[in-house]
Amino acid sequence: MNINLTLIVQLFSFALFVWFCMKFIWPPIMAALDERKQTIADGLAAAERGKREQELAEKRAKELLAETKEQAAELIAQAQKRASEIVEESKGEARSEGQRLLEAARAEIDQEVNRAKEQLRSQVVALAVSGAGKVLAREIDAKAHADLLEELVANL
């Protein structure tokens, strides 16, 4: 229980221990702690950022989907419109083609009729002429009365 030199030795060893702790123990442990703190903070920030980015991407995907749907609907509507247009067009074409064909047929028929009439007429003329010829065998010269006959034909 005596105070003696032990005190001085204790004092100096205490100072030495504190110095050692301050120099060699504190800095590496504090550095590790600070670094870990920084790492965790960075990780949390990155997670937060990732979450926000994901939200953004989800939102964009939704928008894109809606847009695509809209476009598809528009395309379908256009296609339907176009299809009905085409149908209408072809209907019209068919109608006019039919009309044309009809007209052509009619024209042909008319031609045929005319031609037949012409033939008939010339045959009638020939027949009449030959008949008349037979009747007037000697008196009527075909050449001399051609004008008269022509006029007759035109009036038929």
């Binding site: 050692f20 123990i25 590790a32 870990r36 790492t39």
Partner: peptide
């Protein structure tokens, strides 16, 4: 105590302790 803390401090890493 100083030896133990110094040993741990030297190997201290910021990873999983």
């Amino acid at each position: 105590f100083l030896w133990f803390f110094h040993k741990v401090g030297k190997q201290a890493s910021a990873g999983v302790p």
